[in-house]
Amino acid sequence: MTASLVVLWCGGKCLMVFNRYRQAWELPGGMLDPGESPREAAFRELEEESGQRPATLDFAGAARTWYAPGRRFEYLAIYQGRIVSPLPFTPNDEMADSMWWDPGEDLADLHPIDAALAHLCP
């Protein structure tokens, strides 16, 4: 595994973060640090990118994706979790905003793969 993604739910809505560099809404997540497990990376990336700290994250599956700039396949661990009371979001160097998205509604600038993963991990 090279990266982890998190599908986090609160009251029927899924957490999305707005990536400053890609100018798109996406699921929180990122690359594993050396010696870090996929689950540890999921918790770390979720907190770094959104400020959220759920008690647990459950393994939901794995995905293989083509990373075009590096011309290679990457393998992603996907985790899902739930929270009752979201913590406030503070913008950071990577993420400009966060929102709780209703998958039944359109969201401009949402990566299709992130939307599909949210639908697969209800």
Score class of each variant (00 low, 15 high):
Val84Asp: 15
Ser98Gly: 01
Leu15Ser: 10
Ala42Phe: 00
Leu107Trp: 03
Glu47Ile: 02
Pro112Arg: 05
Glu26Val: 07
Ile78Pro: 00
His119Leu: 14
Ala96Lys: 05
Glu47Ala: 13
Pro86Thr: 10
Phe59His: 14
Pro91Gly: 08
Phe43Gly: 01
Val17Glu: 02
Trp100Lys: 09
Phe18Pro: 02
Asp33Glu: 15
Phe18Trp: 14
Ile113Thr: 13
Gln80Pro: 00
Glu74Phe: 03
Asn19His: 13
Val84Gly: 11
Ala115Ser: 12
Pro34Ser: 03
Arg39His: 11
Arg39Leu: 15
Pro122Lys: 09
Ala42His: 00
Glu36Gly: 04
Asp109Cys: 12
Asp58Arg: 13
Pro122Thr: 08
Pro28Gly: 09
Gly51Gln: 11
Trp66Gln: 07
Leu76Glu: 06
Ala96Val: 04
Ser85Gln: 14
Val6Glu: 00
Pro28Asn: 07
Gln23Lys: 15
Asp97Asn: 15
Trp100Phe: 12
Leu15Ala: 06
Arg44Asn: 04
Arg39Trp: 04
Glu36Ser: 05
Ser37Arg: 06
Ala60Tyr: 04
Pro34Gly: 10
Asp93Trp: 05
Gln23Val: 08
Cys10Met: 04
Thr90Asp: 04
Ile113Glu: 15
Val7Phe: 06
Gly30Ser: 03
Asp33Ile: 01
Met16Val: 13
His111Ile: 12
Gln52Asn: 07
Arg22Phe: 13
Phe59Leu: 14
Pro91Ala: 03
Met31Gln: 13
Leu46Cys: 01
Gln80Leu: 08
